[in-house]
Write a protein that binds this DNA or RNA. Sequence first.
DNA 1: ATGGTTGCAAAATGTTTGCAATGGC
DNA 2: GCCATTGCAAACATTTTGCAACCAT
Lengths: 148, 148
Amino acid sequence: MKHADIKEQFREFIREKGLKNTVQREAILNEVLQTGGHFEIEDIVYQMRKKNIPVSRATIYRTLNLLKDMGLINEVIKIDNKTIYELALKHHHDHLICKSCKKIIEFTDEEIEKLQDKICKAHNFFPETHRLEIYGYCQECFQKRKKT
Amino acid sequence: MKHADIKEQFREFIREKGLKNTVQREAILNEVLQTGGHFEIEDIVYQMRKKNIPVSRATIYRTLNLLKDMGLINEVIKIDNKTIYELALKHHHDHLICKSCKKIIEFTDEEIEKLQDKICKAHNFFPETHRLEIYGYCQECFQKRKKT
DNA sequence: ATGGTTGCAAAATGTTTGCAATGGC
DNA sequence: GCCATTGCAAACATTTTGCAACCAT
C-alpha cells in the first residue's frame, strides 16, 4: 500500500472515531512511515527533533497508541523494558534476533501457519496471531564469537 | 528433577561463583519452586509477605536475576511492562496466550525444532532458542465472546 | 462554542543501585 | 576480618495522566 493511501486511511480512522486531525499526528505518522521497519519511541523523537518538528514525547506516545489501535503498527517485543514497534504493512512474518548485536532479521514461512492450526486444534484454542522469535547469532556475530 | 536436587544445584552455583548462601536466597528459591509454573515478582513478594518471611523487594529482584543466570528460570514475556518468569525445569515448550483472560497454556511440538533449523539455514543464522507464542482465545473466552 | 488535543510537569510503574549496616565463610 | 549481601531509600527509565491553554470542526 502506498503511503498516501495509508495517510488517507488514518484520516478516515480519525474521522470515524470522532477525533481530530492535527499537524502533530500527521507529522508523527510521516515519521513512522519513513522508518520502514522496526523502531522505538526514541527513534521517532530523535528524527523529529533533528528536523525541528516540535512535538512532545507525550503526544508521540499517545499517537503511537492510536496507530496501534488502528492496526498500522504492532508491538514486536520489549527489550530492556523498551517497546519495539514495527510497521504492519507487510504480510505476516517472524523474526530472527541476534543476541549479540540485537539485529532483527525478518522471515516468512508457510509451514508455521499449518503448524499453528494443528497445535491449536489439539488444545481447543482459537488462534488469531502468533509470534515466533528465534534467538541466536547472525553470521557476523557467530564468527566473532568463535574467536573468543 | 527433585526440589532437593535443585537446591543443591543452587548452592553449588553459589559456591562456584564465590558467592554466599543466605536465608533470603534459600527462601526465595523455595517460593520460586513452589510456584510450579509461571509467576511474576509480585507473586513472590505476596507469598513471602503472607508467610511472614521478611525479604525486601530489592533482594527478590537480585535473586531472580541470579536464578536467571544459573538457568533455573526464564523470562517468558513482558506484559504491561511486567516481567513474567517461568521455572525452566521442564523440557522446552511454547505458549498459547489467551488475549482475554491472559491464561497461558503450554505445549510442546517436535516439528517446530525442525522448522527452526530449516529457517535458520536459509538465513545463515545460528539458533540457540526460540519462543513461539500463539495469541488467541481459550475455549471459555471464545464462547463468551461469541455471545457479545 | 464545543469538545478533543497539546505540552508541560507530575505521577505512576517496574526495576536498579549507592550505601551503611549486617552476616557468611 | 574480609567481602558479599541485605534493606532502605533514592535513582532510573519508560510510559501515563491531570490540567490549563489551545485549536479543529
